[in-house]
Design a binder for these strands. Sequence first.
DNA 1: ATGGATCATGAAAACCTTTACATCTTCGGT
DNA 2: ACCGAAGATGTAAAGGTTTTCATGATCCAT
Lengths: 342, 342
Amino acid sequence: MQQQKLATIEDVAAIAGVSIATVSRAINEPTKVADATRRRVNEAVARTGYTTNAMARSLRMRRSNMILILAPDVGDPNFSNILVGLETEASKRGYGVLIGNTQNDPERESDYLRFINSNQADGLILFTGHLPYGVGAGEEGGTRLPPMVAVNEPVTNSAVPYVGVDNFEGARIAAEHLISQGHRRIAFIGHSTTKAVNGLREQGYRAALAGAGLSIDPRLILDGDGTTESGRAATEQMFVRDVLPTAFLCVNDATALGVIISLNARKYDLPREFSVMGFDDISFASFVTPSLTTMKQPRLKIGEEAMDLLLALLAGEQPARTEVLLRSELIVRNSVSRAARE
Amino acid sequence: MQQQKLATIEDVAAIAGVSIATVSRAINEPTKVADATRRRVNEAVARTGYTTNAMARSLRMRRSNMILILAPDVGDPNFSNILVGLETEASKRGYGVLIGNTQNDPERESDYLRFINSNQADGLILFTGHLPYGVGAGEEGGTRLPPMVAVNEPVTNSAVPYVGVDNFEGARIAAEHLISQGHRRIAFIGHSTTKAVNGLREQGYRAALAGAGLSIDPRLILDGDGTTESGRAATEQMFVRDVLPTAFLCVNDATALGVIISLNARKYDLPREFSVMGFDDISFASFVTPSLTTMKQPRLKIGEEAMDLLLALLAGEQPARTEVLLRSELIVRNSVSRAARE
DNA sequence: ATGGATCATGAAAACCTTTACATCTTCGGT
DNA sequence: ACCGAAGATGTAAAGGTTTTCATGATCCAT
């Protein structure tokens, strides 16, 4: 009683006076069917309100037109915007997106693989930075990975195609911006040996300084894991050591926020006394005081490109490149001013 | 070559030396099968790595164990946390979640209904505040709506079950908090005749004032659509009119942010000269200066409850209530101080 | 006319389950 | 010793498509 028995392809066939095979063809390969018949079929479809049953179709075709998105944290500010891009492109191409929030729990990761195994999803988008636990287990011989594309973070030690921002280039542009404002003592907050993203951004920072003929003071490079708290802690540490920069280049906006909070608490007048830059342009970057000058990640584009690449993979194409790097954009706000001192 | 022909129920049956019906039963209704057989089947399953093909299962059973989540804007700060709750509960119960970003586009809304029509999704979670375009079209007689639950915003003019925060009560608590700090001239920013949420929160504000024997000054109630810009504009308008409160109760955090930006720009010392409260506790509420005192929505809980309710509906149960209201929590930060003047 | 393409269509298999119904065992009670 | 009930298993249908292969029809070139 819930649904009044939807029309099937047989109903349509009966009304149009053709076989179900012809109906199927009229819908999926219209050119393969005579004009007159096609019209009759279309009319019958309209009359019955027929839509093809996706389950039956998937069963037969062994593909679901679904993409599984695996993310460790759906709340991540980077996530939602990339998701919009992913979803937009997917739906434009007739695909649906399934989302799995793994919280980095191996069990949940492997649990979600059932979607792949049972053909409920044709491909995978990975936000996690690593292969889901349980995938590629028996991959000694030929890799038997499902089609997938990494996003946000590349998958370590693997050939999984990745689309993301050019972190090196972006950080270089950021550092050059600070240099162009007369800063010569620029700190980098967010050194990390484990996070690939942090490493690349630090490289960009170093390249910019080297390019400007500035020497790198190792005391101005501080550890950080990308959290607001790490930015705060690093700043406090600088004051303890009393080795101060004129500008802070932070590995991301969250870190920059920590720096700003710390400096505000110390009653410094920003950006007059210290300049701060972030990276990402997450939503609150424009709301902080002072509003944050940062590098904007083209998240929508990242999502679209990633989905596009995945669908190409699904279509059997070999990816042209295993890494697609998009350019970030300098967003000038109020957290950077000309260096007031050496 | 992509996948090496997954094991089917027939393979398992052959190995275990039973019929496929028995295998199916051994898996789905273990008690209906003799212990010895069950063991043999389990062993065969383990050996083949068999997982049941969800497509075939769905086709036969006419249910997909999928829930479609329709949201107008995946980027909405309220969205992601509720989503976590939805997803957690769904996956705990063996359901997957499909997400559809509609951008309030009627075409996209009705397009997504194909998931429901073709049994690709069993139920619907609505963030949109209205029925998807195309649903309930022929509902003159008996309503033929798919099982669904509204979240974030109730569906206007309908009996769609809703789970959300108690806006009236929350706003009342917020206003009482301001009153308890000695404020007697409290503005409400975010009056709206079209948004149900705004209306309820305004009612809570009025109730609190009335309860404290304070008269309501209509000049202190300003329009607002819940955007940061509307908060800024309302504040500016107050200064133009020169009718000033000692505290601002805002319909949500985004609005409160606009108020704070405006007051900061006018160089007021917050919270000494003006107190500001928001509603929602979105992520940047703690990062603003001054950090925002607000009412926290139990988003995780909302998501879980909503999914729980939907799954109950799916199981054929009649919902006990058509509206589940959860309590919000007062989060005291630094944007409210005792009233310094009358 | 005739032979061979080309084109339009139909019959039926295959995709993989779940489940109603039938069959066969087994067992307890008389 | 027999009957009936209960329990375990198997057979086959149904769920709704897509697609291979076969069949007929049409058409063009010889």
